[in-house]
Structure formats: structure tokens, C-alpha cells
Simulated assay, not measured.
Amino acid sequence: MELLEIFDAQNRPLGFTKPKHDAHRDGDWHRTSEIVVLNTQNEVLLSLRHPDKRYLPNYWDVCVGGHLDPGETYEACAIREIEEEIGVRPEAGELHFLGMVDVEAIDEAVSLFDREHAAVYLFRVDRTLGQFVMQPDEVADLRFRPLATVLDEYRSGAYSLSYTPPQASYRQTLEMAAEFLKIDA
């Protein structure tokens, strides 16, 4: 059973853990790391959530990431999640911290009240899709798309793919990456 540390709305620890499922059901704030993976052509790596995932199966994620284990740092989680989901271990200095985003995703149909304090990182890669190793129970497919194109879709609301909600926080995540790299997107 995966346990999550619980925090208040200001990201202060409350001193207890809860099973992940219960935290998502109850709307408890917890911590995650989100990593925008960009190649040298400024294309963002998109990952298709596995069809057997409990939440949001068959949606495209614009970043890799996941929940912090109790006592884990945001950066340690980011490194672990990159390695688990796409089979690459970042070297020292390859992760760039971009800032924090609060994410709230609510889907009453599946009793999901997800509230996250997410640390956002950028990870630049010089790899082809075939050089990644997908985590079989998490990722069903990978593709690169130009960051500017994905940001245009988020800003206009005209999506060519089914991206994971909530769109406002993921748009903010991608804008942080574009600003960091000084990309006119």
C-alpha cells in the first residue's frame, strides 16, 4: 500500500500519512514532482497513460512524474520517476527546478479529489523515442511534439490529443519550461 504524507493548503506538513487511494478520495494535499522532458529540438515528450490505470487511462501526459514517498525530497522523487517511467537516470546538474504549481484535479465519477503541491523540473535529453524504456504498467506509448504546438493547444483549448486534466496547471507547467529556456512559444 502506497502511503502519502499529508500537507495543508500552504504546503506545511500535518504530521501524518494516508494511503494514496484515501488521500485522493478525501482531497488531502500531498506532494508530487512533475518533469517536463524536452529534446534538443524543443519537443516535449508526451506519455500515454496505460489503459489499465485507475485514474485517467488513455490520456496523454505532458510530463513524467509522481508522488513523493514519505520523507523523500522533490528532487529525489523526480529522479526516481524519470528512471521508472522512461528508463533514464539524470546525471547531477541535468534537472532544472522551475518552481511550484498547485494542482487540483477533481473527477467525482471515480471519487478523485486530487490536490497536489507539485515541484516542476525540466530535463533536457538528446535521445530518440527508441532509446527510452517505458514502464509497462504506467506508460503505453511515447511521442515528441513541439512545445510551441502543445502550448498553443493549451492556450486555445483546441486539443489534438486527450491531455490529462487539469489543463490550467499543465499549461502553467509548460509555460515555466518555455520561459526558462527563453523559447518564444
Rank of each mutant, 00 (worst) to 15 (best):
W29T: 02
R49P: 12
S47Y: 06
G71D: 05
A78T: 03
Y55P: 10
C77H: 02
P57M: 05
N58Y: 06
D52C: 12
L46K: 08
E34V: 10
H50P: 03
Q41F: 13
E75C: 10
K53A: 15
K53S: 15
R31C: 03
C63K: 06
V37Q: 06
R49A: 14
C63P: 03
L38H: 03
Y74S: 13
E75V: 14
S47F: 03
P70Q: 00
G65F: 00
N39K: 04
H50D: 09
I35L: 07
Y74H: 14
D52R: 15
P51S: 12
H50S: 05
W60N: 03
A76G: 11
W60G: 08
R54F: 05
E72Q: 09
L45R: 06
A78S: 05
D52V: 11
D61M: 13
V62M: 00
H67M: 10
Y74L: 09
H30I: 09
C77I: 05
H67A: 14
N58V: 05
V37G: 02
R31A: 04
T40C: 13
A78H: 08
S33E: 04
L38R: 01
S47I: 12
L38F: 04
T73C: 08
I35C: 04
D69S: 11
N58I: 06
C77T: 00
L48N: 02
Y55M: 00
H30S: 09
D52W: 09
L46S: 03
D52N: 13
Y74I: 07
T73K: 05
D61G: 14
V37Y: 08
G71R: 04
W60H: 02
W60S: 02
R49T: 15
R49I: 15
Y59I: 00
L68P: 03
G71T: 10
N58L: 12
I35V: 11
G65T: 07
Y59H: 15
E43H: 08
S47Q: 13
N39E: 00
L56Y: 15
T73S: 14
L68H: 02
V37F: 03
C63L: 07
P70V: 01
I35Q: 05
V44N: 11
V62F: 01
R49N: 13
L48H: 06
V37K: 00
V36L: 05
H50I: 07
V62P: 02
C63S: 11
V64N: 03
R54Q: 10
P70M: 02
L68D: 02
Y59K: 09
V36E: 08
E72V: 01
R31P: 07
L48I: 02
P51E: 10
L48Q: 07
H67E: 13
N42F: 06
H30G: 09
S33G: 12
L45Y: 00
E75A: 09
G65A: 01
G65L: 01
D61Q: 15
W29Y: 07
N39Y: 01
N58F: 09
K53F: 03
E75M: 11
R49G: 14
Y59L: 10
A78M: 04
E75H: 11
L56G: 14
T40W: 11
L68G: 09
G65I: 07
W60L: 04
Y59W: 10
D61Y: 14
V64E: 08
W29E: 01
T40F: 10
L48S: 07
E72K: 06
L48W: 05
Y74T: 10
